[in-house]
Design a binder for these strands. Structure first.
Lengths: 204, 204
DNA sequence: TAGATTGTTAATCGATTAACAATC
DNA sequence: TAGATTGTTAATCGATTAACAATC
């Protein structure tokens, strides 16, 4: 089952988001059709995607929302908490450190690194800010697997390599640069400018 | 030529980013092979993608970096400045308002909206913060086409509809919710939690 | 039972890749 | 000229969609 297309994996968090939303609205059951309507995709795609992992619905009635939500959470390994390291405590890093959405979904920013001596010792919500020289020992000691990079593009590659050497296996990078890392490291990018440039093409 | 796949359009900003990077390093020529190495994709894909728009290279020598960069900028309509409206001036909105990367790429946040009276009149880099009730008149008057949404999920759909009614045609949304909008509106989403959840699947 | 919706198969559609003639 | 690399064609690969038997 390790052969599930990554594009399918990429849709599961979206399904999960919609399910949580329905749960919050006290709905008990849903269908691939309803989910498709909410998400603007085809119902067949949703059923096909889910079929990679098992059978979660019932003919005639659809899916029990809390059950499907639990199952997808398990598949994605988000039925547990994750410790996350944040590198970069500038404007963006500070905003990320304060963002409540991470912890509420089980991603806890437990340690922050920066290379500016003026920022060391500061803390966001009680999370300490350490010097980047501590990346190696701390990440290794705490066995942290996930990191968020919020440093300038010029520093990102070096930081990423350090993180991977220390044991990080998944990186969410806000630096506008494509990282060169071993293939066993998962990387996701967030670059708002890229998204904007993708849309201006369609603005005559 | 309106039939260029959106997935191809989505890669052009990445190509552009790599080209700017090479330019900054004072390189004059590149090849699909070199670009592919930098970006971790195949050279054939790059040539195929570019072929949708014309012929930009020379056999034997490849692409002149500044020329190709200019051409892609024109294709994406980023060879000009764009005025952008930001809605939401909380932690995230403020970080976005301070982010230098937008203006340097031609995206100017010229107006900010929030619904918290305490925040009105504040300003980020001289950009005023107005009440959300002003969205309609101001966006229409200034003919702004692009907006960034940084409000809570619960408010995002209503804000988006207001924006579209006022003339906005491209939205970059940070709200973790799928917006339901007319198909003539381009929408891009940024939800860091979704990206993290997509990676934990692979963390045994 | 009648109606609804699943999971899956097969068909369609589209994107990626390999290969190469053209040519700088 | 010899070497390199383009733009494009054709082949491959993979993802989406339509359709439907199974069944709640």
């Amino acid at each position: 089952m390790g052969e599930v297309p990554d594009i399918v994996i990429g849709r599961l968090p979206i399904y999960l988001r919609a399910l949580k939303h329905l749960m919050a609205a006290d709905k008990e059951f849903t269908s691939s059709q309803e989910l498709g309507r909410i998400l603007g995709i085809g119902s067949a795609q949703i059923r096909k995607d889910l079929s990679h992992f098992g059978e979660f619905g019932k003919q005639g009635t659809g899916y029990e929302i809390s059950y499907l939500s639990d199952q997808i959470s398990k598949i994605l390994n988000v039925d547990r908490d994750w410790s996350v390291a944040l590198v970069g405590f500038g404007d963006l890093g500070q905003a990320l450190a304060h963002y409540a959405g991470f912890a509420s979904k089980g991603f806890h920013i437990d340690i922050i690194f920066d290379n500016d001596p003026a920022k060391l010792g500061e803390s966001a919500k009680g999370t300490p800010v350490l010097d980047v020289s501590q990346i190696g020992p701390i990440i290794a000691e705490r066995k942290i697997r996930i990191a968020i990079i919020a440093v300038p593009a010029s520093a990102a590659q070096a930081v990423a390599e350090q993180l991977v050497d220390s044991g990080i296996r998944a990186i969410l990078s806000y630096a506008p640069i494509t990282l060169k890392l071993p293939e066993y490291v998962r990387v996701q990018y967030i670059d708002p400018v890229t998204h904007l440039q993708r849309m201006t093409y369609y603005l005559a």
